[in-house]
Structure formats: C-alpha cells, structure tokens
Design a binder for these strands. Structure first.
Lengths: 200, 200
DNA sequence: AACAAAGTTGACGCCTGCGTCACTTTCTGG
DNA sequence: CCAGAAAGTGACGCAGGCGTCAACTTTGTT
C-alpha cells in the first residue's frame, strides 16, 4: 500500500483530471461563451488528450451542468443559512444579501461565468440559476409573512425584484475596486426595508 | 417608371431581404443562442442563397449588432420620453417602468432574444443592452436629484437596483397569462418609492 | 516480477461551417 | 427592346470539430 495519501494514485489523478477539465471549461465558457466553445477548446486548456475528456464527461453540456450545480449548491446554502439565522426583518434582508455578495467577491470567476452564460443556463436547465434562488427566497418570504415578521405582499414579485436588484447591484459592486460589501448591503437593505414599510 | 410603389423594385427587395435575414437571425439566436448559431442556420431560415447573405452583412456579429441597435433605440426612446413627461416623483418612477413593461409585452420576440443572449451582448458590445439603460437612468436620477424631486442617494447603485429589479420582474410578468402591466408597475413603483422615502 | 485491469492517447473518418467567385438571373434607363 | 449594371446563386477549397477505438502506459494485485 502506498503511504502517499489516503487514496490510491488512481483515484487522485482521477479527481485532478476532473478538476482540470472543470477549471479549463469555466475559463473557456467565460471567454468564448458556452455556445461558441468546443470540447477541443476545453481540452486544449488541460494537458490531457481528446479521448480522455470523454472518460469524464459525455459532452460539453454535462460539463456546464456540473459547474452550475456546484455553484448553485454553494450559493444557496450560504444565503439560506444566513436567512435562517436572522431574528429580525432587517437581519433577514441584510443577512441574505451579505451572504450573496460575499460569495460574489470571493469567487469572481464564478461571477464571470454566470454573467456571460446566464441566458444559456436558464434555457438549458430550465432556470436553476436565478430561478432556484428566486424560488427559495419566495418560500422564505412566505414563511416570514406567516410568522408575522414581514407585512403581507406579493412574494412572487418581491422575490423577483430582490434577486434582480441583488444580481445587478452585485455585479456593479464586483466591478468596483475594492468592492465594498457592507456599503452595498446597507444600500439594498435600505431599499427593501423601505419597500416593506410602504407595502405593509 | 413602375407605378407599383414609391421605390423601385430593386430597392424594395433589398429592404425585404435585409428584413428577412434579421427576422431569421432573431429566431435562430433565440433558439440556439448566438454562439452556437451559424450563418448557415440564418440563411436556412430565409429563401436566399449563402452568398446573398454576405451582400447584406459581413458576418453574424453584425447581424446581432443591427438587431440590438434597433431594439435599444426603440426601448430607450420610449422610457426616456415617459420619464421626461413626468412631473412628480411617482410619475417618474411609474412612467419609466410602464413604458418598459409595455414594450416587453408588445414584443415578446425581443424579450426572448435579450433574455437568451444578454451575456453575449454585454461582453460583445461592452454593455449597450442593460448598460445603456442603467446609464441613462442614472443620469435621469441625478437630474431629478438636482431638481429636488428626489432625495439625494447613490444614483449608481439605485439605477442598477431599479434596472435589475425591473428586468427580473418584467420577465416574470411576461410569463404570466395575461401579463398585468398596471399591477406590475404599481408593485415596482411602491418598492422604489418606499426606498426613496427611507433613504431621503 | 509478472500480469490484468484501468486509464490515456491521438490519429482517423465523417460532417459541417466558412467566405469566395465565376456564372446566371433580374432590373433599369435609354 | 436592349445592353449594361446590380444582385443572386451555390459549388468549391479550406479549416476545424465530433466521438471512436486500437495501441500503449500506468497502477494495483498476487
């Protein structure tokens, strides 16, 4: 038995290759856009051969799916955790936005990927990108309404407005140097607390 | 001279061919996405020959550019006109959103095109799509602030938030059957009037 | 050390797109 | 009605992507 690492050499290279493909693919999808990117473009971004690619993924679509899946799981977990921990309305709104904005700042590559390919992602996997985020926010809003923490309103529209504003403002924030998460959180929180006040 | 129409036959077919290419291209860009679309795909959507395409456009990029240009001119003109006509803060906010939402409802093809290819459009012609809209809104907001019609605030972030929310809410509205422009306008207006109140 | 299983490699055949250009068709002005 | 100009046509040569597979290399096992 090798003492090198926990897992055997085989398993390790497998993980490394998969990661290499995903990383290269992310780069390529950002630079060329998903549609214009070819499997060869991805392969060229690794030191693997063409055939090897197909040992890991059946086609470029599944690579995008894997990428999107990882991102979605991470982002939604963070945001949801922040919202669950909140005790006040302000905490709920600010916490959710803060978690999301921090994620953006930590991972600019992901931001770029989503930004460039949002349309493709939306139509290809009916709406898991923003869609899932809006859906979850809607549920959280409805829960908050039932608990009396938020005045009643059209949660559908509110969720769309909050996610839409969050995405757009988040992109603007990331472009600034340096990005000021707290200031941005304060701004968006103000906007939506104002909205809740006026609606309730 | 022909009596058929004002212009000669030559000129008329020219306009018709150009329009046919544009229409086919819009369809193709919606269905396949810009990146995956080929000039041949566009040509197949018309009854023209390959070579003819190149009499009208040098490549597929200029077709997208032409499409985007038309849309942008139209949409921004409408929104700006509505805002210019406004005398109150509420009129300013509601009018802008109403003009934009009405445009979306009138032209679902355009919505689909923008939705699918927003990322490409953004990166390809540095931001004329949403970017120009945000830019104009920012200017209008600053003007309104100077005129004392709106309390002072970060117009950059506010413009991003309003456009982001407007786009996302607008897409949700268009999916509903039938789309209810006035209700959606009322909602978004409420949100941002609340925001202005709280910020000012 | 020797062998089988697992994994990697890249050349191969097929297909489709690109932009061009010699040729044909259509229009227009005289 | 005709001649020349304008526009339309599609086959052509080139380029590059796709997914495969037989040969090779690496790893784990006995």
């Amino acid at each position: 038995m090798g003492l090198k690492t926990a897992a055997g050499r085989r398993e390790r290279t497998k993980a490394a290759n998969r990661a290499a493909i995903l990383t290269a693919a992310r780069r390529v999808f950002i630079d060329l856009g998903y549609g214009a990117a070819s499997v060869r473009d991805i392969v060229r971004g690794t030191d693997l051969a063409t055939g090897t690619f197909y040992n890991y993924f059946p086609d470029k679509e599944s690579v995008l799916a894997a990428l999107v899946d990882e991102i979605g799981v991470e982002a939604r977990a963070r945001v949801r955790a922040a919202r669950m921990a909140a005790t006040t309305l302000e905490g709920f709104v600010a916490g959710g936005f803060r978690a999301y904005f921090e994620f953006l700042v930590e991972d600019p590559e992901t931001v770029a990927l989503m930004r460039r390919n949002a349309g493709t992602i939306r139509t290809k996997f009916d709406e898991p990108a923003l869609g899932a985020g809006i859906e979850e926010l809607r549920e959280d809003l409805e829960t908050a309404v039932r608990a009396g923490r938020v005045p009643p309103h059209d949660a559908d529209l509110m969720a769309a407005a909050m996610v839409g504003a969050g995405v757009e403002v988040g992109l603007l924030m990331v472009e600034r140097d340096p990005p000021d998460v707290e200031r941005t959180v304060a701004f968006v929180t103000n906007v939506f607390l104002g909205a809740f006040e006026r609606i309730g």
